[in-house]
Amino acid sequence: MCLAIPMRVVSGGELGAWCEGRGERRWIDLTLIGVQPQGAWLVAFRDVARQVLSADEAHALNLALDGLEAALRGETADLDAYFPDLVRRAPEIPGNLQSGDGDSER
């Protein structure tokens, strides 16, 4: 299914850059979003950069993908912790899952 992974610019030039994300290192074409500084986050589709992400957005997406991997491993507990800004807190959610749950994107 159409998953996208956040990639971080390691080195590169105007047309493309070596980017790393979730254990992958790929040459990403930057022509659609323009040159990006080292450390910038982006999402690519078939090795063409599609959009620039803020550090917060990249963190949220990485955390969501961690959650997906945890679910695929069969873990069922604590999955809310992977979506801290999206999952509404409820009285039965243990307090330790609510830490760091301050800002909301949506």
């Binding site: 159409c2 998953l3 996208a4 589709f45 997406l61 969501a64 997906l68 945890a70 809310d80 999952v87």
Partner: peptide
């Protein structure tokens, strides 16, 4: 993959889907 949505409130699950499936996020 949809297993990650089990146990969530319906509204939360709907909010999670576009983040997980970014490429066709609106359709998802």
């Amino acid at each position: 993959m949809a297993q990650v949505l089990v146990g969530k409130r319906a509204a939360d699950a709907v909010a999670m889907v576009p983040r997980l499936f970014t490429i066709c996020g609106r359709s998802q």
